[in-house]
Design a protein around this nucleic acid. Sequence first.
DNA 1: CACATTTGATTGACGTGTCAATCATGCTCC
DNA 2: GGAGCATGATTGACACGTCAATCAAATGTG
Lengths: 159, 159
Amino acid sequence: MTEDTPSRSRQSPTSDELRIWRGFIETTQALNARLSARLHEESALSPGDYAVLLALSEADGHRLRSSELADAVGWERSRLSHHIRRMEARDLIRRDDCAVDYRGAEVVRTDEGAQAFRSASVPHLRAVRELFVDALTPAQLEQVEEITVALRTHVAPDR
Amino acid sequence: MTEDTPSRSRQSPTSDELRIWRGFIETTQALNARLSARLHEESALSPGDYAVLLALSEADGHRLRSSELADAVGWERSRLSHHIRRMEARDLIRRDDCAVDYRGAEVVRTDEGAQAFRSASVPHLRAVRELFVDALTPAQLEQVEEITVALRTHVAPDR
DNA sequence: CACATTTGATTGACGTGTCAATCATGCTCC
DNA sequence: GGAGCATGATTGACACGTCAATCAAATGTG
């Protein structure tokens, strides 16, 4: 791929592009893994637990319909359903029947859930700062934003 | 950093930093999900299968000791062991006893595995180009490299 | 050589994720 | 109002991942 076809018609990445790509996924996966590990050490919450509790914390009355919660965390329904069941067993959330639509349930943060989220939040945010923000210069942080926007607009539309 | 403490002593990211962070993980996760989906549609291989077959393809004689393979794909031993068992059941790889050390096994790519990797490879690389490379300008690609290097050197050392 | 320790790898238990099937309530239209 | 479809959500089966425990071969030390 050093000097192949008119460059617009190539299908595979060049070896440079591929090296950058590999570095990119490996790094993001490692970063994710490190943050999950820290979260787990410091709070006994999984990333999933944290995401659910974060969404509930930002919601009105700390409660959401299942489908709204699924949208908020960006999960499929069934994934949320499984996770919610496990979290309910640990008293982090509770499911109330929804008065306006008896098909639906409302997911409510319990006091234990609120407490767990609060104690997880500070160390987690510190970890985000240490492992992500502090690794980059302010200019690089801006570049990250532009890059993620470019990727998202390019990835999301299709499907 | 709007006007808090001497800026070096802050612990949590600012809201700008947090917004960038959220965008970053959500985007990388979405990108991963899209690529996994494409891989699965086009080849019946999971990302794990692909990683293992890629490592074996790059190895001398298309065979590696379990521990070398684990290093190559960056997995824990037990994760590899589980995955290898599933892949062996589908005839994608085979485990040979290792002549020089009877504790260890050698993981060998089967013909079916080689074939599956080859047919997966082209569409996968095309997807990488479409979803990642083509979304970014050449300058942004270089920035990605600098950023991943910065993150990796900052993340890896500690553990 | 016998014993303990280290090392390569596997196993089991359990949390997590996906997909397809299912179930129950709500809705529409005759 | 009842048949049929749409919608909100759950379930079951199975793939994947982590952790701690285990196992067997290799190595070191008296």
